[in-house]
């Protein structure tokens, strides 16, 4: 116990140097590692030897043409389209909600109230059924044109276009609109939290420079709010990938999970197609997580001590041209 300790007398002559100490032993940690390793080994062995997995069928099912088409034209397109609508509309709703104008604020509140209350499967089923409201097609026209014409005894057509409601509301377009409207209600809350997280002094500094409210929101407040908005938006996007499997409510069948299930029921290989679906969803979410972490880094620039490198700038240029193009005026 005493042989290695140096006495106070020698410490006075010789100043202590580099530390070379025996580390604490984490016995519990090693036990945990052993248990987890054992569990993983058992799982792998089970998955490789259990015939129900039928791995060769899994790989084949994953790359069937209808599955790939469903993945791209349903799952990925549906996610991208509905998230674009959700983010853009959500930010608009959030800005309205924070507006001084009580009518705008109330409208935004009512929007969120309505779309948060409706389950997505129900909403999509309603979207698919909207066609019954427009048996003669949807007219794009001057509002109340017929009533005005009746009242003033005028004639002629004030209709600009007539759309087939079944075409608009069924199919992937209806799905994107439905999921986008629903998503906007959630994004509005996320964007509102983000906007409120920005120091009010930022808005004042912008105003003092002569910026309009809109310009200050766009150039100063929102980019800073993005730091708070991006992480939960990543979660929303990943949740949306999974919710595209609800497109069947419309019904849209060109979608990853439906296509895999139908292969399963045709071939009686129900379990392998489920494994194939899980693998696809895992792959998509992994890619999304990488994109999310890059976005977080970009919008976190200037916060914390790390200086943003050229990689962030290049990434920005690729992902979104958030900084606007050239000079140009505008108020």
């Amino acid at each position: 116990m005493t042989e290695s300790g140096s006495s106070a007398a020698t410490a006075a002559d010789e100043r202590p140097g580099a530390i070379d100490a025996v580390p604490v032993r984490h016995l519990g940690r090693w036990v945990a590692v052993a248990f987890i390793a054992l569990g993983i080994a058992m799982l792998v062995q089970f998955m490789l030897t259990n015939k129900a997995f039928n791995w060769s069928f899994v790989w084949k099912a994953m790359i069937q043409t209808p599955v790939i088409n469903g993945l791209i034209g349903g799952t990925l397109l549906g996610t991208a389209g509905s998230m674009v609508i959700g983010v853009v509309l959500g930010v608009i709703v959030a800005v309205m909600r924070l507006s001084d104008n009580p009518v705008l604020a109330w409208t935004a509140w009512a929007y969120t109230w309505f779309f948060r209350a409706i389950p997505r499967l129900v909403l999509l089923t309603i979207m698919g059924a909207l066609g019954v409201l427009y048996p003669a097609g949807m007219r794009i026209a001057i509002p109340f044109d017929r009533q005005i014409q009746d009242l003033l005894g005028m004639h002629g057509t004030w209709t600009f276009a007539t759309l087939d409601a079944n075409q608009v509301f069924t199919g992937i377009l209806g799905g994107i609109i439905g999921l986008g409207l629903s998503e906007a209600a959630y994004m509005a809350e996320i964007a509102r939290a983000g906007i409120l997280s920005v120091d009010p002094g930022q808005n004042e500094a912008a105003a003092a420079l002569g910026m309009s409210d809109g310009l200050a929101m766009r150039r100063i407040v929102l980019p800073q709010a993005m730091r708070v908005i991006v992480p939960p938006t990543g979660n929303e996007t990943i949740a949306m990938v999974k919710d595209t499997s609800l497109l069947i409510g419309i019904p849209v069948s060109n979608e990853l999970f439906f296509q895999l299930s139908s292969i399963g029921s045709r071939t009686y290989q129900t379990f392998p197609v489920l494994v194939a679906a899980v693998i696809w969803y895992l792959l998509i979410c992994s890619v999304l997580m990488v994109i999310q972490s890059r976005l977080e880094r970009y919008f976190g620039r200037g916060f914390g001590t790390r200086a943003p490198g050229p990689r962030d700038q290049a990434f920005l240029a690729k992902m979104l041209s958030f900084r606007g193009g050239g000079g140009g005026g505008g108020m």
């Binding site: 002094g201 004042e204 500094a205 105003a207 002569g210 980019p223 200037g302 916060f303």
Partner: peptide, 18 residues
């Protein structure tokens, strides 16, 4: 406001800009 410059106690620089 454009003809008036203001300097704040807490600077209020835009942190996301150089």
């Amino acid at each position: 406001r454009r003809q008036i410059g203001m300097v704040f106690q807490r600077f209020n620089l835009f942190p996301h800009k150089t």
